[in-house]
Computed example of a mutant assay.
Amino acid sequence: MTIAARDPRSTDELRKALVESLMAVIGAPDDVPTAETAATTLRGLDERLVSEAGSG
């Protein structure tokens, strides 16, 4: 199961979460868990957008 399939948030909510995650990385650039959260959010949004593009 993909990250996007497990995430119950809408695509718009994922976009907002990505912005928040990237802002957190800017605020704490050496914090590995923060970077991992941002990376996971980015992968989830990417999977979701690819999936939506393929189904349209």
Rank of each mutant, 00 (worst) to 15 (best):
M1S: 09
M1R: 10
M1F: 12
M1I: 13
T2H: 03
T2P: 13
T2W: 07
T2N: 08
I3H: 05
I3W: 05
I3A: 08
I3G: 05
A4Q: 00
A4S: 14
A4L: 03
A5L: 12
R6H: 10
D7T: 01
D7S: 02
D7A: 03
P8K: 00
R9G: 06
R9C: 02
R9Q: 08
R9Y: 04
R9V: 05
S10K: 01
S10C: 06
S10R: 01
T11H: 10
E13F: 01
R15E: 13
R15F: 05
R15K: 12
R15S: 09
K16W: 09
A17D: 07
A17P: 01
A17E: 08
A17Q: 09
L18K: 02
L18D: 02
V19K: 10
V19F: 08
V19P: 02
V19R: 06
E20K: 08
E20Y: 04
S21G: 11
S21M: 04
S21Q: 05
L22F: 10
M23K: 08
M23D: 14
M23C: 10
A24N: 06
A24C: 03
A24D: 05
I26A: 15
G27D: 10
G27C: 03
G27W: 03
P29I: 00
V32H: 09
V32Q: 14
T34P: 03
T34Q: 07
A35D: 05
A35S: 10
A35K: 09
E36C: 12
E36R: 07
E36A: 09
E36S: 12
E36I: 08
T37V: 11
T37Q: 09
T37R: 12
A39Y: 07
T40H: 09
T41I: 14
T41P: 10
L42I: 10
L42K: 13
L42S: 14
G44I: 00
L45N: 01
L45F: 07
L45S: 03
L45I: 02
D46W: 12
D46V: 15
E47V: 08
R48T: 03
L49S: 07
L49M: 13
L49Q: 05
L49F: 02
L49V: 12
V50I: 14
S51T: 15
S51V: 12
E52F: 07
E52L: 13
E52V: 08
A53V: 14
A53L: 13
A53C: 13
A53Q: 12
G54E: 07
G54L: 12
S55F: 06
S55W: 09
S55D: 15
G56Q: 11
